[in-house]
């Protein structure tokens, strides 16, 4: 690809400019490019390579081409994990977006000191490591430390156990929403603040109500920010690991080692030393994420995405 897109100059001048542009362009991008190749391209290539082999105690390492992938896509542990993260995303992402959008819209309407303070407090969980976030909620859910038994007990009711097998889905849903809603809210709030206020005035003169302004102006105007959030949430959720891993010990028996694809890959690689199969699962998961996001972005491109 040639890079000379400037207006026609004399050939000699253009040549020297373009050489200069090449030299300095690559000098600035170079250090990152090296890390990119070493820490992203190489590991991906290596994961693909590892995934083409199988290791056994008797036969040693042998080339199996897509054998591991055939195994993964018929392995109930992997498939159930993929199914779990997909269903989890389908519930989580709309919920998270609704919560963060609602808060951002409220904060956009009321501009009091209290509102400013609450904006900061609601954002706070973002600064907390997911490990600690999961642990805090694990304590709150626990019947030993948590307030749930006490609270429900005063009404004479049985407290729900969010660490039980049936409710762990909701337990995790709450943790992830709590952790990220504030960050998404800040992004949406900034996008709302960027809207030209004269639009609201124009709408109001045309007789629009506050609700109509929200639905017809504010939400469509922050659509690119919503899309950005959706993509990040999708990438994050499909590789779900930290929260279930931390709750695994607290929620005895509710979270098996193959709960999510990432946990399964971790178990295969580091508990069973089966790096080939672990790499297969990682690579397959990475490909699933990449393809999902890419298709999604392609489908929504017209509406103005950050990646278009």
């Amino acid at each position: 690809m040639t890079a000379t897109t400037e207006a026609p100059l004399s050939t000699k001048r253009r040549k020297s400019t373009s050489a200069r542009q090449n030299l300095f362009g690559w000098m600035f991008v170079g250090p990152f490019a090296i890390i990119f190749l070493a820490m992203l391209v190489l590991p991906i290539g290596y994961a693909l390579y590892l995934s083409l082999f199988q290791k056994s105690l008797i036969g040693g390492t042998r080339f199996v081409l897509f054998g591991n992938y055939v195994k993964a896509f018929s392995d109930p542990s992997f498939l159930d994990g993929v199914w779990f993260v997909i269903t989890f995303s389908l519930v989580l992402i709309p919920l998270q977006m609704a919560v963060s959008l609602a808060i951002a819209l409220i904060l956009d309407i009321i501009v009091t000191r209290f509102a400013r303070f609450s904006r900061l407090m609601i954002f706070m969980p973002y600064a907390i490591p997911t490990v600690i976030g999961a642990l805090m909620w694990g304590f709150l859910y626990s019947d030993t430390f948590g307030p749930l038994a006490e609270l429900f007990g005063t009404f004479g009711a049985q407290a729900p156990d969010f660490l039980s097998r049936n409710l762990i889905f909701y337990g995790l849903l709450n943790i992830v929403t709590w952790q990220w809603a504030g960050y998404y809210m800040i992004i949406l709030y900034a996008a709302l603040q960027g809207i030209d206020p004269t639009l609201y005035e124009a709408a109001r003169i045309d007789g629009a109500s506050q609700w109509q302004i929200v639905w017809r102006i504010k939400i469509p105007m922050v659509a690119p920010a919503l899309l950005l959030i959706l993509v990040f949430a999708l990438i994050g959720t499909l590789q779900f690991f930290n929260e279930p891993k931390i709750l695994q010990d607290l929620a005895a028996g509710s979270i098996p080692n193959d709960f999510t694809p990432n946990m399964y890959a971790y178990q295969q690689a580091f508990s069973l030393a089966n790096y080939n199969y672990g790499a297969t699962i990682s690579f397959a998961l990475g490909a699933v994420v990449f393809i999902c996001v890419y298709i999604f972005l392609f489908a929504t491109r017209k509406r103005g995405s950050i990646f278009s």
């Binding site: 300095f24 992203l40 990438i235």
Partner: peptide, 28 residues
């Protein structure tokens, strides 16, 4: 800078934003 390969490398970079980092942990 309008250097050679800029558009291609930038497209690759945008693709890389979508690569889940945990997928890199085992091969790394």
């Amino acid at each position: 800078y309008q250097f050679a390969g800029r558009r291609l490398s930038f497209a690759i970079l945008l693709g890389a934003v979508m690569v889940p980092t945990t997928a890199l942990a085992i091969p790394t």
